[in-house]
Simulated scan of single mutants.
Amino acid sequence: MRKSLITLAVLGAASGAANAQSGVTLYGVIDGSIEYVNRVAASATTPTQGGKRFGMPSVGGLSASRWGLRGVEDLGAGNQVLFVLESGFQWDSGQLQSAPLFNRQSFIGMQSKGIGKLTFGRQYTSFFEGMANFAPMRFAATYEPGIWWMGLNYREDNMVKYTGQFGPLQAVAHWSFGTGVAVQNASILLANGGAGEVPGHFSDNTAYGASLMYLNGSGFGASIAADVWRPAATTGQPGTMTKLGAAALYNTGPFKFTLGYRYNKAEFANGNTLLRDDYWWAGINYQATPALGLSLAYYYADVKGARVASTPTSAETNPPNMQQVSFIADYNFSKRTDVYLSAGYARNGGLSFDSAATAYAFRYPTMAGQKSMVGVTVGIRQIF
């Protein structure tokens, strides 16, 4: 449920320019949990230290906590102006997830009935738009390898995006003039600390992609998507990250089945491979009662090659393939409030495939010599 904060009709009352379909909405999610994890390293740089961890993760078990403002103004004749400002925060401390205030989304645009929507700013990629509905755990913040799947660039700055909805068929395409990911060790990602447009080097940090998704509301759904990002750790020497994906789902009664595949290749400017993997997933969702939903998923990453040292001239290795099984039991008290138990078992890596390739965004660095990791979290979520 979303509550109206203030309407543009009120703001424009003095001039008499009011429209009932125009307004600004405040919305958000707060998700908090308590978690147990075994065999987790103290940090990525101290793999010989660590052990069991019991506490409150900064990211909730099902959703990343956030708040935002969504606005629309009706211009008549089926035309509208819209904007979204969305900020993520750590529920346990109240701190922002990263420095920009609206770090999740910040865009403005226009949409026209029967034609589509054109938006400008920080947004989700076309790849994310095409794939997210096929996540077995509904893109859960904990114990689903979302960043491994989508890439750290699944949101991008300086983006122009088109979205067209034609009955059950959605078409999305985007271009970013310059995007990056601000992480401590940017060389791992071929990125440059969140650099955007670079004068004199148009191709540095550019990105583009497209997706085509069919969802008829019940029964069958399918999607294909592509994403290319050219991050430049060194000005004028962009690398290339390419992702291709295909997924399908089928609903029957209280069951939903999901299956998908994602190809990934990340290359340095000299053509050497940073990471090449094939990622597969499958899941089943069961609505046991109107209030209780159960989800079970399996994830597998076939790593063809990687440069562990994350430099163009280091030796290429073939690390063990990662696997994970995840489970969620989610009980809804209402449309706004639910409680849950989630568990994950990872083999040959950290939970959610946490690694240098994900900049350890999930905080599950592996201990030296470990073969598996287990996590369990229980929590409560409120949607407003």
Rank of each mutant, 00 (worst) to 15 (best):
D74L: 12
F107E: 12
V40L: 10
D338M: 07
S22G: 02
D157N: 13
G164A: 08
D92C: 07
A13I: 05
V198A: 05
L190V: 06
S310A: 15
S355M: 03
A77S: 12
V37I: 11
S22W: 09
A329R: 03
N348C: 09
G245H: 09
D330Q: 09
L296N: 06
S295Y: 12
G146W: 07
R122F: 02
F362C: 10
D278R: 14
V72G: 12
K265Y: 04
G76W: 09
G50A: 11
T358G: 09
Y298N: 02
P57N: 03
T377H: 01
N103T: 13
S355P: 00
T25S: 10
L75G: 00
P136T: 10
W149G: 03
A301Y: 02
G55V: 09
Q184F: 11
G116V: 05
Y162D: 05
V308I: 15
A233M: 10
N264A: 08
Q80L: 01
N192D: 15
L8K: 12
A99W: 09
G239F: 06
L275W: 13
L249Y: 08
N285K: 08
G180L: 05
S65F: 01
N205M: 01
F177K: 03
Y331M: 08
L169D: 03
A141Y: 03
G164W: 07
L244S: 01
D278S: 11
D204A: 08
N216Q: 14
M150S: 03
Y340D: 08
N318T: 15
N318G: 10
G116R: 06
Y340C: 04
A368K: 13
T377D: 06
P365D: 10
Q165N: 13
G130S: 08
A291C: 05
T337D: 15
T313F: 10
S223W: 10
F166S: 02
M56R: 03
A135K: 00
A20S: 14
F268K: 07
Y360R: 10
A186N: 06
W280C: 00
T48S: 15
I224N: 07
A297F: 01
S33N: 15
M322I: 04
T358K: 05
L215Q: 14
F128I: 01
D204R: 02
L11F: 15
G219C: 05
T258F: 13
S126Q: 02
P136V: 04
T163P: 01
M322Q: 13
I115W: 04
L75D: 02
G283H: 06
R336Q: 14
N133H: 08
G16N: 05
S65I: 02
P312Y: 03
F353N: 08
F166Y: 14
A13Y: 12
K335D: 12
L5E: 06
S112N: 14
Y27T: 04
L259V: 14
R262F: 11
F128N: 06
N38P: 09
A233D: 13
S87I: 11
P199F: 03
I224V: 15
L212T: 06
G350N: 00
Y124S: 04
V339Y: 02
F128C: 05
Y208K: 14
S126R: 04
M322E: 09
W175Y: 15
S106K: 07
N251S: 14
K243S: 14
Y263K: 04
